[in-house]
């Protein structure tokens, strides 16, 4: 199982906070997961997920798109952070 979380602008635009996905070895990197989500949800998701500003985290650590995924991982997509 993979848990996929969306925050801020992405959460609102995609109207999705959390997705629980069956683990599939086909989907073995953050980039591949993005492509899978776009395939399932269409061009609106593509526009948002492929935006160059989107940040990816796996198990609450910011990672590059090539980061491999494992069963049980928590993946998050969000825009640049604006703390302080």
């Amino acid at each position: 199982m993979l848990s996929v979380r969306f925050f801020s602008l992405l959460r609102e635009a995609l109207n999705t906070e959390v997705l629980e996905l069956e683990w599939s070895s086909r989907c073995c990197t953050v980039g591949a997961l993005k492509q899978e989500l776009i395939k399932q949800n269409g061009s609106f998701w593509e526009e948002h997920l492929m935006h160059p500003n989107v940040i990816h985290a796996v198990n609450q650590r910011v990672v590059m798109i090539e980061e491999p995924l494992h069963d049980g991982d928590e993946i998050a997509f969000f825009p640049p952070m604006t703390g302080g």
Binding site: F7, S8, L9, N53, A57, V62, F78, P79, P80, M81, T82, G83, G84
Partner: peptide, 27 residues
């Protein structure tokens, strides 16, 4: 600490205005 917190801590600000409009703050 402040300079790293601003860009690396996962917070996102949304401004609400008196006219009802709202806007996510850009980094």
């Amino acid at each position: 600490i402040m300079d790293h917190l601003k860009t690396n801590a996962p917070f996102w600000k949304k401004e609400r205005h008196p006219d009802g409009k709202a806007q996510w703050v850009a980094a």
